[in-house]
Amino acid sequence: MITCRQLTKKYGSKAAVDAVDLTLEPGHVYAMMGPNGSGKTTWMKMAAGLVRSTGGEILYNGKPIGVESRRHVAYMSTEPYFYNWMTARDVGKYYQDFFDDFSMEKYEKLLQRMDLDIAAKVRTLSSGMMAKLKIAVTMARDAKVYMLDEPFNGIDLLARDEIRTCILEEAAADKVMVLSSHLVEEMETIADWAVFLKNGRLVEMRDLEQMRSTDHVSMADRYREIYGHTEG
């Protein structure tokens, strides 16, 4: 479980994340939605322990984010981050060295499903292949919290299906999944909750199926309502 209270990250006078109160519970897949600059990536990085907050707090199972939480939190950033002298196999070995919950077997299987050569050099990967590698290595962990920032970006249709299946297979009653994506349509069926961020603030959190049955709107519709420019 991830909880944050009045979580804030300021860069100078600008707040990338502005006094956010949020609780994410295991057993759900959260779609973190918002245009670029709404605070999704910064929020995720704070939960991953990569960025220090400037105000408020963020906790994993009641304790502040730190070395312990990193054992159970798997974060996949939008940018490539592997050492460029590595091969895909080296990347797997690195994760194996530092993450107890990493399974080399699962990793190899995922690479196969996504058509990636384990001997491929990171330096030579196209952006699509790099995106697949990032996903494979992240999902090969048996973490308690998964945060995937734009997991479908730059990925071909078939690989997207693989990734979706992979995410759904991994989702469990004791795991928190947070996905952010511009591909709203993909997220409609995978997520059961939507978290809408705007200018660093939390707009709302909705149970998607409930929203569909009571308001008769899709997540995409709600997205347009929240972020669209009002006419008149």
Partner: peptide
Amino acid sequence: GRELAAQYGINPNTAAR
């Protein structure tokens, strides 16, 4: 339930329902 979710590309809670 999980298989149904993966098969139809839907959230496992939705599948359970």
